[in-house]
Design a protein around this nucleic acid. Structure first.
Lengths: 206, 206
DNA sequence: GTTAATACCATACAAATGTATGGTAAATAT
DNA sequence: ATATTTACCATACATTTGTATGGTATTAAC
């Protein structure tokens, strides 16, 4: 028991988690609708498989009676989408490079993602190499916000300042020069605003 | 509209909130069962009244389709149990001293709690005043672990080292002397091991 | 004294929901 | 070559669920 989930089962479990976090667990019909199944029995069978593997618990006969047993776990696995340079820009990865166990208390809006910080240019902002920054792409950055940005196919985390005809990305660490982006800069994009920082102590106890 | 709720309506609304925070919104039958009503229609009528007063929104025909429109105000009182001194011990508070705003769904794991750090003795461990440390009381601390401890009715977060006949709690910041606890010390207790640090950037953008 | 609001009940019904059974097809393992 | 697992479908059925309607009793308002 507690075998691995198949790909489809994973997808369904993810859907359950997502729906639960933004409302309530779906019914079989809703799941079927989302995945394009013409029949609720298909969903039923998948759910039975997921339950037998220990990832959910179903309350028989009760509508939306799916409990996520993984919620009791301390951490929820979240993909780390890439690494960002706090100092000099680093290459960003196309796919997730890693998965971290993020505590459930960390505020993780649905549409946000994680980036792992490399380098020490944010030292004075208390963000360090290895920390995970939680980035929300749907917030308009304001002066002084920490933002993640893509600059010529590299990613950085720095503090954002809007000036007349340019944007400045500053490090807290005075060793690093601010990056000045003119309006005309071709390959520049604000990815999102850093809404939180998380650091696991697991590997740092030694 | 948006008149006052009657007492019964208040009770029902409270029930809805409670159920939602610990799972999912109840069905009419479940509400009726909880309040001892023999009929779902009674609940239906109360819900219609509550809705007409603007406290909930109902999704017709959908099971458990009650949305709490007051949700945004309401949420989520996640208690911070006290403040811990990273430097010199601070008095611990009997009750929660503060609340961190967390989304409804972000549940704290049952076996852990939050402490907000004050002071800068852990500066060199990259933990700063205002950060939240996630403390798990069910882990046996090992050498070098960051632990939360109670010492003479005060709480501290420091690094843990076990020696022959004593325990040492060290700060990373050399300005602070290590605390030496002899075996015989009466009022000393390890509360738990710090498993993570979380910092919300909300208030730090300026 | 009548009206209105509140708080319940019983009955009824269509749709939603979870469940069960049997079957097909493809991929994988033995 | 056969058996197993996975991934779907169709059909069927008993409850559950939300909803509607009509009724009773109590209290407060006019």
């Amino acid at each position: 028991m507690a075998r691995e989930l198949t790909n489809i089962q994973k997808k369904i479990l993810e859907f359950l988690i997502e729906r639960k976090t933004k409302g309530s667990v779906p019914t079989l019909a809703e799941i079927a609708g989302f995945f394009g199944y013409k029949n609720r029995a298909t969903v039923q069978q998948h759910l039975q498989a997921i339950e037998s593997k220990g990832f959910i618990k179903r309350n028989p006969k009760i509508s939306r009676g799916i409990e996520l047993t993984i919620e009791d776990k301390f951490f929820i696995p979240r993909p780390v989408l890439g690494e960002v340079a706090a100092g000099n820009p680093l290459t960003i990865y196309p796919d997730s490079i890693d998965t971290v166990e993020l505590p459930t208390i960390a505020r993780m809006p649905q549409d946000s993602f994680l980036l792992r910080v490399k380098g020490d240019s944010l030292k004075d902002a208390y963000i360090f190499s290895g920390d995970l920054v939680i980035v929300n792409p749907n917030i308009e950055p304001g002066d002084g916000h920490f933002v993640a940005a893509i600059l010529d196919d590299a990613a950085v985390v720095k503090r954002f300042f809007r000036r007349k005809n340019r944007i400045e990305l500053r490090s807290e660490n005075p060793e690093y020069e601010p990056i000045i982006i003119e309006r005309t800069h071709p390959n520049f994009k604000i990815v999102g605003v850093v809404v939180g920082v998380y650091r696991s102590m697991d590997k740092k106890v030694g």
